[in-house]
Design a protein around this nucleic acid. Structure first.
Length: 335
DNA sequence: AAGTCACCCAACCGCGTCTGA
DNA sequence: GTCAGACGCGGTTGGGTGACT
């Protein structure tokens, strides 16, 4: 499609905005709305292209933009959504009232990415990095792994002791370290845990306890693909994890990582579902004109918004069916 | 005080998508 | 169905700033 000449046009100013320009833009939008961005600069008396005006407004001048540092809760939301949606910054931003996609993108690149890397998590796949062959170095991950017990609580019959799981994982890692072939445990090993995609659901891997205290129902996560959801559901139904041994006997499908996947889906894995539901339709759009609604995304709208949004937007009857089933069940978040 | 470096973030670029003629 | 204009999004850049030498 034809690209608009936009800022290539002669004489249009680029670069940082002056206070005078800001005032003109704000004044015009408050009086007339932005209408056509293309036509706005001329009407507002600005020597800028419409694109530049739109960006300035949406990323900086909009009255509902929240300033200041990101809260811990916002960080959690970003990380969780990024694990599901990948670099869909606008979709992520729509779940963080008052935050812009640009701001979130910058924050991810400058802070969260590094944070995950320091924790031994690949910020792209949200999986533990495989260059951790040292058991001690992997301890934070082991602690995190222990917390996937929370997810197993999805099945009400399942209660797995976190310490037991940590021990099992530690044992597993020790064997790996001792193995002459690093990361190459025979697939027949009884200790090879089920690390297949997203079995452990959307648990965050931060050491932050508030994260681990939030088991989440997979079915509500629109970014996760259908197969993943069904696999989890089938596992829960067919193989109730009521004992350590049952965990150990689970099928070996992917021993690439030495630790269970701790998030719902890597971006590439969730592509299928993203194709089914347009990104812009996945997330619940908050009323951004109401800054007081901030921080409500994941902790207050745990359940219904996702369901509502998908129910409203997804045309696929299959998705509707799934959502009808899952939405009729209480969201397992503790308040 | 001056120079260098790393970090942050506002702004730009270019591509894909939407929409209306 | 096709096309072109407009918009939205994600990736990238580069100027400002603070820390360090």
């Amino acid at each position: 499609m034809g690209r608009s000449p936009c800022c290539d046009e002669n004489g249009l100013k680029k670069g940082p905005w002056t206070q005078d320009e800001d005032e003109k833009l704000i004044d015009h939008i408050q009086k007339h709305g932005h209408g056509s961005w293309r036509a706005l600069p001329k009407q507002a008396g600005l020597n800028r292209c419409g694109k530049s005006c739109r960006l300035r407004w949406t990323n900086y001048l909009r009255p509902d933009i929240k300033r200041g540092n990101f809260t811990e809760e916002e960080e959690e939301t970003i990380i969780n959504l990024h694990s599901l949606l990948g670099n869909k910054w606008s979709s992520i931003a729509s779940n963080l009232p008052g935050r812009t996609d640009n701001e979130i993108k910058n924050y991810w690149n400058t802070h969260l990415r590094k944070k995950l890397l320091q924790m031994g998590i690949d910020p792209v796949t949200h999986r533990p990095r495989t260059d951790h062959l040292n058991v001690l170095a992997a301890l934070p991950q082991l602690i995190a792994a222990a917390n996937f017990n929370n997810l197993l609580n999805l099945n009400q019959n399942v209660q797995l002791d976190a310490a037991t799981l940590a021990k099992a994982q530690l044992l597993h890692n020790m064997i790996q370290v001792l193995s002459t072939n690093n990361n190459n445990i025979p697939s027949s090993s009884p200790l090879t845990m089920q690390t297949n995609n997203n079995l452990f659901g959307q648990s965050s891997y931060l050491e932050n306890q508030s994260l681990f205290g939030q088991p989440q129902n997979f079915s509500h996560i629109p970014g996760a693909n259908h197969d993943e959801k069904m696999m989890v559901e089938n596992q829960m139904i067919d193989q109730p994890l009521d004992s350590f041994s049952s965990l150990m006997q689970m099928d070996v499908q992917d021993d690439h990582n030495s630790l269970p996947l701790l998030v719902a889906a890597s971006p590439e894995e969730s592509n299928q579902s993203q194709m089914m539901i347009k990104n812009k339709d996945i997330v619940h759009r908050h009323d951004t004109s109401n800054p007081s609604s901030s921080n409500s995304s994941f902790t207050q709208d745990h359940h219904q918004p996702w369901c509502d949004t998908i129910d409203d937007e997804a045309g696929d009857s299959y998705w509707k069916e799934i959502m009808e089933q899952t939405c009729s069940e209480p969201w397992p978040f503790p308040e």
